[in-house]
């Protein structure tokens, strides 16, 4: 087992992890403020890519416009979802909102598969995005590189947003104590909408990366990555942006290394191992790796 082999596997893990990381950021944003686990988050990703698929049918549209439109549709769906389902439920138990998000997820999945048939479909981004670059022992496509860069950009931008802007401060206040911030005159609805906008936009963006990398899309494609990203967010400390990214990378790398380094009669236990790892980490650090002490009690 050479060094290059392990390095290569590590890169594979980072590639996968970066996708989980971006979805997990969206999860974390919403959770941090509303204490809502939004299972429909993964399906926003699906909404985004299907919109792009439709738009790519119209030749002549530049790809950035297609992606932007996908993000906008996904954001709109996210906002509608918030307005129609989650807002009336605000203040009710965590379990109730969790189940309603499952229902939203079922709704979106079925709607998409009714419109676009349940068949897997090919999804091709322009070649300049998917071409492979060899960097020494590893090879990365443009979209991989863009994904990794975008994580850094997103993290910096969101941190600035949270630390420097008024709405960001309001968001932090809300995540500390929703009721108190309302008393202080913060318009919670605006804050929540902003969180959903960012979350859904990021979800659609991940959709491009996921679909561009693997070149296929299907109505149920968002669920498993969504679930893994959710685990990532929990692992890293849900509510914490850095934690979400860290969790995403840990899960991606652990998954790939487990599949890559273990003998093949153990590798089917990969997902079991991931969850086992998650449980162990939670036992040692009940609020996740970077979570604030408040999270576990919530």
């Amino acid at each position: 087992m050479s060094f290059n082999y392990i390095l290569g596997q590590l890169i594979n893990g980072i590639k996968l992890g970066s996708i989980y990381a971006i979805i997990a950021i969206g999860y974390s944003m919403v959770y941090g403020i509303l204490r809502l686990i939004n299972f429909a988050h993964g399906d926003l990703l699906t909404v985004g890519v299907y919109t792009m698929l439709v738009l790519m049918g119209f030749s002549g549209l530049p790809i950035w416009l297609v992606i932007l439109a996908g993000c906008i549709v996904s954001i709109m769906v996210g906002m509608t979802m918030e307005r129609l389902v989650y807002r009336p439920l605000r203040g009710s138990g965590e379990e109730t909102t969790l189940i309603s998000s499952l229902a939203v997820s079922v709704f979106l999945q079925n709607l998409i598969s009714m419109i676009f048939t349940p068949q897997k479909k090919a999804f091709h981004l322009p070649d300049f995005l998917t071409v492979n670059h060899s960097l020494g022992p590893v090879s990365l496509s443009t979209i991989n590189i863009l994904t990794m860069i975008s994580i850094v950009v997103i993290l910096i931008a969101l941190t600035l947003l949270l630390k420097k802007t008024k709405i960001g401060m309001a968001m932090r206040a809300c995540s500390d104590n929703l009721a108190a911030s309302q008393l202080m005159g913060i318009k919670i609805n605006n804050v929540v909408v902003v969180a959903f906008v960012i979350g859904s936009g990021l979800a659609a963006l991940t959709g491009v990366m996921l679909a561009g990398e693997y070149k296929t899309i299907e109505p149920l494609m968002g669920f498993v990555p969504g679930l893994k990203a959710f685990c990532a967010a929990v692992l890293g400390g849900i509510g914490s942006l850095n934690g979400a990214v860290l969790g995403g990378f840990i899960i991606g790398i652990a998954e790939v290394l487990f599949a890559g380094l273990m003998p093949s009669d153990i590798t089917p236990y990969r997902d079991a191992f991931i969850f086992f790892l998650l449980i162990v980490v939670l036992l040692v650090k009940p609020n996740g790796i970077l979570g604030s002490s408040e999270g576990g009690r919530s």
């Binding site: 204490r35 685990c231 849900i238 969850f275 036992l283 009940p286």
Partner: peptide, 15 residues
């Protein structure tokens, strides 16, 4: 574990 963390752990049990 509490609240959502317990939910995740029990989901993990299914897997």
């Amino acid at each position: 574990l509490k609240s959502h963390y317990l939910s995740v752990a029990t989901l993990g049990l299914i897997v």
